[in-house]
């Protein structure tokens, strides 16, 4: 089960990444230009139909993979780069610093992530870069909490004691003895938080905080399809939303499979 989940997830992710990279070769039309036929249902010419401005939806879906991948990957890397070291330091040194950091991170973690991202994006103004910052801030506590917890349990293990006795510096212990033991957790948390961040990105984009017309992005395209729904134009919303789910599912499957393989049950 867990292997099949892993491969299915990886297949989905690679397909979407491939699509994003080779978008100009895959998309049959310019995603930002009208083809002349507005609101056409899916057909041989336009396999996902056309939108209210006559743009080919399949081409927009293909190009739409770019913004979400860039935002989500860079945001997740940023939260990892901040959250992991803080978690290591907080868990290893303990004391007052740990208590303060944990309290801040726990409070942030308890706050609804999308609302926090909306607040940050609203203050910074809508742009791809600002959305990236907003999403990065939101997922720092996820890394922090996980890595701090693991560091707490690893630092009591014998090999860490041995390194201390033999005179290794704290920095060396953190780098050589503790970090390698939390590295797998970092990967698992990365794939699970990316799965979540994709939904957050789509949400922000849907609410108009990331791109402006005519840039294609799945969440944003979904919101442009909303006014046409009561008239029954189902294809404008169906395909972009399906892609959000598919990509998020890809990372969720990989994350689930990895956590089943590498994390002890109580850490999941």
């Amino acid at each position: 089960m867990s292997n099949r989940m892993l491969y299915a997830g990886l297949a989905i992710i690679s397909a979407v990444v491939f699509m994003a990279i080779f978008a100009p070769f895959i998309a049959p039309y310019d995603p930002t230009k009208s083809t002349g036929d507005v609101l056409q249902p899916p057909s041989a010419e336009h396999i996902m139909g056309t939108d209210n401005l006559g743009r080919d939806i399949f081409s927009r879906v293909v190009y739409g993979a770019r913004v979400v991948l860039i935002v989500v990957f860079s945001a997740s890397l940023l939260s990892m780069l901040v959250g992991v070291p803080l978690g290591l330091i907080s868990g290893y040194y303990g004391g007052k610093l740990d208590r303060v950091l944990s309290m801040i991170m726990d409070s942030l973690y308890a706050f609804p992530s999308l609302i926090l991202a909306i607040a940050i994006a609203a203050v910074l103004g809508p742009s791809v870069f600002n959305a990236m910052v907003a999403i990065a801030v939101v997922y720092i506590p996820t890394y922090f909490r996980m890595i701090r917890g693991q560091t707490l349990s690893i630092k009591t293990r014998l090999f860490v004691e041995a390194a201390k006795v033999s005179g290794a510096s704290n920095a060396r212990i953190l780098r050589k003895y503790i970090f390698p033991n939390v590295a797998t957790t970092v990967i698992v948390v990365f794939s699970l938080s990316v799965a979540d961040a994709i939904i957050t990105e789509a949400g922000l984009s849907f609410l108009g905080f990331i791109v402006t017309a005519p840039t294609p992005d799945w969440g944003f395209d979904l919101s442009s399809g909303k006014p046409y729904l009561p008239a029954g134009y189902w294809w404008m919303i169906t395909f972009p939303g399906l892609m959000v789910m598919l990509l998020s599912l890809g990372f969720a499957l990989v994350g689930e499979a990895l956590s089943e393989k590498y994390l002890a049950r109580e850490e999941r």
Partner: peptide, 29 residues
């Protein structure tokens, strides 16, 4: 096994999309 898949699927559903599909089916059609 299928309920386990359901739990992953449900989690990755994008609310505006899923909501609009329901609107389309139960409201519009």
């Amino acid at each position: 096994a299928s309920l386990r898949l359901y739990s992953v699927f449900a989690y990755t559903l994008f609310i505006p999309w899923f909501g609009m599909l329901l609107q389309m089916i139960f409201g519009v059609y």
